[in-house]
Design a protein around this nucleic acid. Structure first.
Length: 163
DNA sequence: AAAGTGATCATG
DNA sequence: ATGATCACTTTG
């Protein structure tokens, strides 16, 4: 069973401790364990980009599980998301931190991820690996940076950190 | 605490 | 065509 077929909040929790494998064009391989994630759960979630419907930008969120969603935030930072759940259901998990890089903008810098990976499928230049490691403890907390969302959605414990 | 930065989306 | 809005980081 693929983790990414799960609903986003469950997938987000299950992804903590897994390993991202990044293959660069020049052959360099970077491996990094995921330490922090956040779930964005469909059109009903007012914090999700897709809560205002399908647009050119959010189109990728409607693609099948395992699609990579990358977008630019604040003009500077690339954000890396993994699409989860069934096709036409816009759910995704934001990778907020990996071993050696804490913060979503730093993760993409660390892994050399930019717009060129948007709408690509996991398993090529970026792949997921499970080495059997299970985190001793995973903490759940509210998501950050979503002050525009409804109070109920801001209160959801959809941020998962390895601890 | 504050600003820097540019794609995207909703207006006119 | 113009303007508001950001799943953030760095600097002071």
């Amino acid at each position: 069973m693929n983790i990414l077929d799960l609903p986003a909040p469950e997938a987000a929790r299950a992804l903590v401790g897994k390993i991202l494998v990044r293959q660069l064009a020049d052959g360099t391989v970077i491996r990094a364990r995921i330490t922090e994630t956040e779930a964005y759960f469909g059109e009903a979630d007012t914090a999700c980009h897709a809560c205002h419907g399908r647009t050119k930008r959010t189109e990728v969120l409607y693609h099948p599980a395992g699609t990579i969603y990358v977008y630019l935030c604040y003009g500077i930072h690339w954000m890396l998301n993994l699409v989860t759940g069934p096709a036409d259901d816009p759910q995704a998990v934001l990778i907020r931190g990996v071993e050696g890089a804490s913060g979503p903008g730093r993760v993409t810098k660390f892994l050399h991820i930019d717009k060129s990976l948007n709408d690509a499928a996991l398993g090529g230049a970026l792949a997921l690996e499970d080495d059997g490691f299970v985190p001793a403890h995973i903490a759940a907390s509210p998501r950050v940076g979503i002050g525009y969302a409804s109070p109920e959605d801001q209160a959801r414990l959809w941020r998962f950190t390895m601890g």
